[in-house]
Amino acid sequence: MNNTQYELNKGLAQMLKGGVIMDVTTPEQAIIAQEAGACAVMALERIPADIRAAGGVSRMSDPKMIKGIQEAVSIPVMAKCRIGHFVEAQILEAIEIDYIDESEVLSPADDIYHIDKTNFKVPFVCGARDLGEALRRISEGASMIRTKGEPGTGDVVQAVRHMRKMNGEIRKVCALSKDELFEEAKKLQVPYELLSYVHENGKLPVVNFAAGGVATPADAALMMQLGAEGVFVGSGVFKSGNPKKRASAIVQAVTNYKDAKLIAKLSEDLGEAMVGINPSEIKIIMEERGK
């Protein structure tokens, strides 16, 4: 990937800002998501809540299923590959996916190395729990970051923790003097140049979305007020009682995330939210995957 391509890939993430990216498993769901105002969809065979329930090894989705979704909608289509599985990524690039999520939601294919994303033309988004993870993924070529949260739980606590941690660390880096950055880069295990960018600009060099456990318009607005530039909703929409209405309400809540009156109205009569599970009740902690 040359510099211009990387700028274009970061640019696409910028176009997604202020939007909601929804997990979908069928062309029908993709159309519902697009009509509800999703700015992109994530095509996958099973949403995280079902991946949890099914157990076993979770892999990239069937390209045919992804193509079906690409044909059904005009908004960007993303898909997940396993951490470190660069061949799955090559396949997704070959079918012209708009964004690859190298995701901890799937079973990691490599327990040490992430994909060298600079070898690809297609853009990548990666999960991160803190500033160190985020900058390591960016140095590997990611052009968009999202919090990991704890996917498939309907519990927003981890996404909140990760967003607060990342932004707290960014504020700390801003407060350092320039000559202290070398040591901080060493501690965080990140390239000095990227840390220097954070020091000067007070933000990551790429767009940062919230993901993992967002289930209500209030959850989405909470993440936006905490500094997210947009929101991924995984299991939260299509595991709820009224996906269409909930999806549309979450989209509006992200645009007007500071307007409590409007969010109150949007939160009315949404039907059953996904049931959700607490992190203490689950066996697989996905956020631990890929550091």
Binding site: M15, G18, G19, E35, G37, A38, C39, A40, Q252, T255
Partner: peptide, 9 residues
């Protein structure tokens, strides 16, 4: 951005 989203909003 995404015109479908913007138009709807």
């Amino acid at each position: 951005g995404e015109s479908t989203v913007q138009g709807k909003l």
